[in-house]
Design a protein around this nucleic acid. Sequence first.
DNA 1: TCAATATATGAATATATGCTCATATAAGTT
DNA 2: AACTTATATGAGCATATATTCATATATTGA
Lengths: 101, 101
Amino acid sequence: MEELYEPLDEETLFIVSQTFKALSDPTRIRILHLLSSGEFSVTEIANRLSLLQSTVSHQLRFLKNLRLVKYRREGTTLYYSHDDEHVLHILEQTIRHARDH
Amino acid sequence: MEELYEPLDEETLFIVSQTFKALSDPTRIRILHLLSSGEFSVTEIANRLSLLQSTVSHQLRFLKNLRLVKYRREGTTLYYSHDDEHVLHILEQTIRHARDH
DNA sequence: TCAATATATGAATATATGCTCATATAAGTT
DNA sequence: AACTTATATGAGCATATATTCATATATTGA
């Protein structure tokens, strides 16, 4: 019933907090949630979510640094998609949980 | 394979972001992780985690507001324990995931 | 090479956040 | 009531964060 307690080491604590920090901002949540349905260019994301291109780009860099998203290039266009099944699963799980009030 | 996309309404977005915000701070993570193994008083938490009583009390209030923890009183002592299986499960899951590098 | 389009970046700003200190409150004990 | 112990609270401060604006970079095509 109760979990076994093991104090968290610095590195684990950092990774865990960074991961959840990525999921704690409404803009990043919306971006990741959109990317859960496929790949989109920066401009497409900005249009779909009514955000500035710059805002989207900044947040995608944040997510990219944590390897939560990846992209492929096609000409001048970068198509972004998610790159962490575990984190995406947690997000979608929590969204469903929240929607049940 | 891909999830069905449904734009997030304001309320869901707020709940989800608040939930992850609770898990995005190292101090709150340590407190919740400790509480995953049982109930502890404010002073015990502070001692175990080498934090000031005030710091712990502030963070417990934060977690209490989100109903992630609850307490029972015994004299002047308040014993805190976790109060959200779903969130605790996500935390422990992510800790295990992070520990595997 | 120049223009057009897509994206990234840096600085500035406003706001949010976490910690600490000092102090308040609450319950139990004498 | 006074004292002790446990916890809560508010103000102040330092830092972190998200957004915006202006501009830089990169790729393609004429």
